[in-house]
Design a protein around this nucleic acid. Sequence first.
DNA 1: CCTACCGATCGGTAGG
DNA 2: CCTACCGATCGGTAGG
Lengths: 206, 206
Amino acid sequence: MAVARTKTKARASTADEGNRRAELIRAAGKLFVEKGFDATTIRDIADAVGMRSGSPFYHFKSKQDMLKSVMIEGLQAALTAQQAAIAGVRGAEARFRALIKSHLRIILEDHTEFPVLLYEWRALTDDSRAEVIAVKDRYEAVWQSVLKDLVKAGLLKDDGRVTRLLLFGAFNWTVQWYRPDGEFTIDDIAERAVDLYLCPQAEGRR
Amino acid sequence: MAVARTKTKARASTADEGNRRAELIRAAGKLFVEKGFDATTIRDIADAVGMRSGSPFYHFKSKQDMLKSVMIEGLQAALTAQQAAIAGVRGAEARFRALIKSHLRIILEDHTEFPVLLYEWRALTDDSRAEVIAVKDRYEAVWQSVLKDLVKAGLLKDDGRVTRLLLFGAFNWTVQWYRPDGEFTIDDIAERAVDLYLCPQAEGRR
DNA sequence: CCTACCGATCGGTAGG
DNA sequence: CCTACCGATCGGTAGG
């Protein structure tokens, strides 16, 4: 009674169902980023898309299932953006810069579901985690090849696992401090990072 | 009935109360790190120190109050370790290395409350946050002075806010991937980091 | 610090 | 996708 709803003829086509599912993922992603997975209730998510509290379970079998879907959605968007960002870009340093900007935009600007991956890794059950890792590996493989090229070009000393994780860490941590209305743009940060990490005489040392 | 308790004479001295409080902080910190703040219940914490579920509220006025206390405790331990780590160490690079190792140990090894600060920043209310920031600033000030010296020595290009945050990010993110039984020691990571960040001919560029 | 408890809320389900 | 609801659990409190 208290809720106004459009009472159109129920034509539950597959396309409609897909749309509602996508809406739920988007709403859940936004809430997971803002409040965290545990602090977000199914009721919050249902409210955000104008459903009743029991209805999301028609689309997802559990809250955990929503989390997994949100993360995979975010990763797929990131993969698409990543491909677009480096398409046609030549040279290790240029590709590095392009990857950084794309990554930061995905994390900080695009209101995608990607940050959920960074925040809520712990909330994933082992089963869900395995599924997510499969997609994540594809995203990281592109970085690895660029880092390898940087070493070959003498701009980076090392592209081993630790170095890679330190690099990702610096970028991923930006979620914690970046503010859209702050004094630095995403491009500022990217340039600072390129400057911080690339060292022209890398081979000359030690 | 189901719980065995020592029924000694109740001598609630201030020292005892302080001990119980400290025990609660330690137990809460451990649980917050393992399961997250939201997923940890007062009952979990009470269980861990052998109390009943209502009793922690004798020592803390709310769960939020516990969170704040845990973070401040962690920061104070970090400050002490930091002072010890750089005491008597001369030279910008050596001090940098010492700070990194101390920081990583505090985060990864010492089972302190510090990581709660990294994980649960969002869970802090604004009031609590202000109190925590005051202590955090003291910890970061030491880093700032060392970074400034590195720039002066020509080993780092820049020590501005963004560079600083990228640096911290890389270290703080290690909580997400470091495993004590993994292939890298904390010292390995520290050495990789020094290598990654310091660039001898810093002034020669641009 | 325990006992006993409250009001609120949560994830999820049955049945339509 | 809604209605109506359940069992469980949670943070917190009164009174001792």
